[in-house]
Design a protein around this nucleic acid. Structure first.
Length: 383
RNA sequence: GGACAGGUGGGUGAGUGGUUAAAGCCAACAGACUGUAAAUCUGUCCCUCCUUGCGAGGUACGAAGGUUCGAAUCCUUCCCUGUCCA
């Protein structure tokens, strides 16, 4: 298997366009990966995910799938791909994010994380080794090492200790992986931590480099810090990671930030924003956000985004979507999620094209120059 | 015609003499959301004013009177609604 093929690099910014080969297809990078935590991208059928949206890779979650339905159940049913009828690539997060999001339901020790299930309180010990085993049972194409995702802000001392723990876990996970699971069909990515401290980020990246992994992630971002900080941390960390390996920034970002991350050498991103915000009534458009529940859309016959070629925009009005939202109809979530994901994925396709054509700097400048209103005005939405 | 039960803010529905401009829920109107405990969560939700404060007035619990220092709460009459009996 060709590990990671870089097709073009922007000489100005360092942005790359590449091909990430997996046992479940080729992923064109830079890529945005829709989040499908519980073996489903909420609201969207795999048929649309592969067809209309043409996503090449999606996320699953170790913690959630371990608890329900259980990795052994999924293994016995033929693996996660078969289980959810998704024959393209899957990346699984390790449960490291749940260390952050389920703070209060877990205890971190040097050995790993002891979770109290949010479903029934049962206690489960997650170790670097066990999370690799679970992800192998799921049949993940890209596995993530167990890491400790700290909240913001965290003290220097706490961040340093945590960062070292994450390094130790990464080593343990990698050793285990090389002993039991490395077969050229899958990958295991370590995750750079270090909170918002440049020296910790550098040290962490440095140490993880020794693992000579098949790809690296930058984690611990989008945990409450100002947006500029997430960008700064990425900017200083990405160049420390191997040029010939995919770089993955976890849990970002807003649409306009996507090219910014790519400009900093990032190849992969994921975020729940497009899917979650869709369900909560927040639609991303080329002219800024459309909060579909707003009264101003009650009689708006226009599509969500004139410029969007998605199924939702091609066939339905804002007024209809607003109605579905107000009525809490299931179809709303589906149509809204299809739109938002299509919006994100189309942005990534444009970014990739720009890089391949050597026009990424212009693209970036153009995006930066667009002064999108925070919210569309009454006048704009009526016109 | 008779007997019960009941009429509370957009809806529903608590509240039976004073911390009640009146709980809760819903609707409505806004806000949040970044490796998903999220089809979730938060706020506003009678009117006017300002020095925007757990501020000042004014209206308000079917209607009109009355009792009381004080009434959505007690009394009287009337109007209306529901159920049952003729």
């Amino acid at each position: 298997m060709l590990p990671f093929e870089i097709q073009a690099t922007c000489p100005t910014t360092g942005a790359r366009a590449g091909l990430l080969h997996t046992a479940h297809g080729v992923v064109e990078t830079p890529v945005f990966m829709p989040v499908g935590t519980q073996a489903t991208v909420k609201g969207v059928m795999p048929r649309d995910l592969a067809g209309e949206l043409d996503a090449k890779i999606i996320l699953g979650n170790t913690y959630h799938l371990f608890l329900r339905p259980g990795h052994e159940t999924i293994r016995s049913l033929g693996g996660l791909h078969k289980f959810m009828n998704w024959d393209r690539a899957i990346l699984t997060d390790s449960g490291g994010f749940q260390v952050f999001s389920l703070e209060g339901l877990r205890k971190v020790t040097e050995e790993g994380v002891l979770f109290s299930s949010h479903l029934n309180g049962d206690r489960h010990m997650f170790t670097p080794e066990s999370t690799v085993d679970v992800q192998m049972a799921l049949g993940s194409d890209i596995m993530m090492v167990l890491d400790e995702c700290l909240p913001y802000p965290s003290s220097l001392e706490a961040s340093r200790a945590s960062m070292h723990r994450t390094i130790n876990w990464a080593r343990a996970a990698y050793q285990h992986y090389e002993r039991t699971g490395k077969d050229g069909q899958r990958r295991l990515f370590p995750i750079v931590q270090g909170s918002m401290f440049p020296e910790l980020r550098r040290e962490c990246a440095d140490k993880l480099m020794e693992l000579d992994a098949e790809g690296y992630a930058i984690g611990g971002l989008s945990v409450g810090e100002p947006r500029e900080l997430s960008m700064e941390m990425t900017e200083l960390t990405a160049p420390l990671l191997p040029k010939d390996k995919p770089r993955y920034v976890m849990g970002v970002g807003m649409p306009r930030e996507l090219p910014e991350y790519v400009a900093r050498g990032v190849d992969m991103m994921d975020c729940v924003l497009p899917s979650r915000n869709a369900r909560n009534g927040y639609l991303f458009t080329s002219r800024g956000p459309v909060i579909i529940k707003h009264q101003r859309y009650k009689e708006d016959a226009n599509p969500v985004d004139e410029a969007c070629p998605c199924y939702t925009c091609k066939n339905f009005s804002r007024a209809y979507l607003r109605h579905l939202f107000q009525a809490a109809e299931i179809l709303y979530s589906t149509l809204a999620t299809i739109h938002n994901l299509r919006y994100y994925l189309d942005i990534m396709r444009r970014i990739r094209q720009a890089i391949l054509l050597g026009k990424f700097p212009e693209y970036l400048l153009q995006v930066r120059a667009e002064q999108l209103p925070e919210l569309q005005t009454e006048k704009e939405s009526v016109s």
